[in-house]
């Protein structure tokens, strides 16, 4: 059984995130993907959307965030579309991991987890001035 594509549209706020996160989980429950894909889809959504909410609109703006959910034969693709500051997550490298707790910095781990979960990532800044970031997750 394959899920119908769905678009979640919500304000770039804490409350918007929580509502959309619940909608995502409902969509995933209706899909036939395995436990790991379900977990990774939630992980990617959480990391990307909390980044957008926290940093994307620091310079102002109130355009909604849209997340397109699509289920393919062996994968789930989520496309995050926001009107915030230009930000290309594919252009970041993984942080250097600390070897001791004293030197551990707190940050940069979210995108690293996204990269580990994804089989494919792509980013474009559209002519309309929006970020479009697509993440494909194997549906194992």
């Amino acid at each position: 059984m394959s899920n119908q594509p769905q678009v979640l549209t919500f304000p770039a706020t804490h409350e918007g995130f929580e509502t959309a996160f619940a909608d995502l989980r409902e969509w995933l429950d209706g899909s036939a993907v395995g436990t790991k894909a379900h977990f990774n889809a939630e992980l990617v959504f959480e990391e990307i959307v909390t980044n957008i909410v926290r940093y994307g609109y620091a310079g102002g703006g109130d355009e909604p965030v849209a997340v397109e959910l699509q289920q393919g034969p062996g994968s789930i693709t989520m496309t995050f579309d926001d009107g915030g500051e230009p930000f290309d997550p594919t252009g970041k490298s993984d942080p250097e991991l600390p070897k001791s707790i004293e030197e551990a910095k707190i940050g940069g781990l979210g995108l690293m987890l996204v990269r580990k979960a994804a089989s494919d990532l792509s980013y474009e800044r559209t002519d309309e001035g929006r970020n479009r970031f697509s993440v494909t997750i194997p549906a194992e």
Binding site: L43, E102, I106
Partner: peptide, 19 residues
């Protein structure tokens, strides 16, 4: 049953304070 980077940060912050 689920953890994201915020959870990892929480553990690192407490581990560092205890250290």
């Amino acid at each position: 049953d689920f953890i994201a980077s915020m959870g990892i940060r929480m553990f690192i912050a407490v581990a560092r304070a205890l250290s």
